[in-house]
Design a protein around this nucleic acid. Structure first.
Lengths: 232, 232
DNA sequence: CGCCGCATTGAGTCGCGTCAAGTATAGTGG
DNA sequence: CCACTATACTTGACGCGACTCAATGCGGCG
């Protein structure tokens, strides 16, 4: 399926936004659109011909499997995010869709060529990569020494921010994109602890649960206080 | 102090290695050499005019401070490594020398200009950034659900690999670049636990301690087994 | 020498993991 | 429409591993 950049919702924010219309049109010839359903994998750790992609809609997770077979979520990818290890001979982690997702996929070799052809693209990808690095380090800080409750509070706060359309305020109500098990694997906790602490956050009056995945922020300030972060 | 690329030990492996001699000479005009002693800071979190740098010799740590004042080490930087957040308005983390270190420092504005002038440099920095991202995610995996003993074993193994000059084997003897407290902050443990587990690794016959910082690898295979990793 | 930073060691406690039931909710096939 | 199953989630009891608190050892330096 061919790309339709004209109607692309992340046209202005993805890496390819730095290209001129002509350049983007040329790049689009090499790429193609792809849709993944929840649970479908874009590529797996160890794949030697892993593609690169920009996420258009939906959400992805980047995860690794330790030797006991436990999954660990290392990063989430939101729309306009870029996926792909350009210089590694093979992929180091799995990339899986959390919700139905639409992507703009490129073969790695094509993208490497594009980087050389369009210097602005390399710069844009460098910027994204640095942002990803920052996100990864933030997750490190979060899981470093914080209590289970603080980790959960911080994660919920982040999700609320990500669920909001405008960047200046956070959503008061949203659906968790992750199952309890996925939250646990991301925060280095167990399913049971996540479930218990969610209950305690509700009892404390910080949030209200709606069904299995719905979260309403009752007291965002309290949530942030429990997360042990500076007010942003 | 001016740069002397001719005698630079990381001339072949740092980001600037992708430049031609002429290009590097031009870039060198904008940069300058700087030496840091152990504990000296390159820049602090919040600095709005944080520089960028390539590490020539020594070792650095990238760390954050949580609101209780506890330091958390987020990454280590080895020679040829690049430091600097090119697109952020201010630095997010502290960067501090672990040992006496020599760096090649650039103002951020100069480096941004260089990226535009030399596309190959952007590509090289993108590559480094992706490697840093991978390292950060590896640390995430390591601190995610592993036991204190496994984390220590893995860290010691990594240090042994980093201390080796050739990439194909690991050093049998080396000095830990970190204090117990720094190891603890990097692994999300306490000083006491680090000290105890080091003792247990010695009792188990995996390592031998020499003074406060010296480590001799008695049984590397055992160490790797305890770290819970695949044999590389 | 006396002080200070770093490391070790011990005793006690607690948070979170483990194990084990038990409860929704959706999907499937009869 | 209803059993039947699968998957996700919740809840409780219990134990262990790592943190906390506290004391001691050790080396460097003024």
């Amino acid at each position: 399926m061919n790309l339709h950049c004209d109607t692309c919702p992340v046209r202005g924010s993805a890496a390819c936004a730095v290209l001129s219309d002509d350049e983007r049109a040329a790049l689009a010839k090499a790429g193609r659109s792809r849709t993944l359903n929840r649970g479908e994998m874009l590529f797996a750790a160890g794949d030697d011909e892993a593609a690169c992609a920009t996420l258009i809609t939906g959400a992805l997770k980047v995860s690794g499997i330790d030797k006991d077979g436990n999954e660990q979520i290392l990063a989430l990818v939101h729309p306009a995010g870029f996926i792909g290890e350009l210089f590694a001979p093979f992929a180091h982690h799995d990339v899986v869709a959390l919700t139905e997702s639409r992507l703009c996929v490129f073969a790695r070799s094509d993208l490497e060529r594009a980087i050389d052809t369009y210097p602005a693209l390399a710069r844009a990808l460098l910027r994204r990569s640095q942002e990803d690095l920052l996100a990864s380090r933030n997750l490190l800080e979060m899981t470093g020494q914080a209590s289970a409750e603080a980790r959960l509070a911080a994660l919920i706060h982040d999700f609320a921010a990500a669920a909001s359309d405008t960047s200046c305020h956070i959503a008061a109500r949203f659906e968790l994109p992750l199952t309890r098990g996925e939250i646990a694997s991301m925060l280095g906790l167990t399913i049971e602890t996540v479930s218990r602490k969610l209950g305690e956050l509700e009892t404390a009056g910080a949030i209200r649960r709606e069904g299995k995945r719905g979260i309403e922020l009752v007291d965002p300030a309290l949530l942030q206080a429990l997360s042990g972060r500076q007010s942003a």
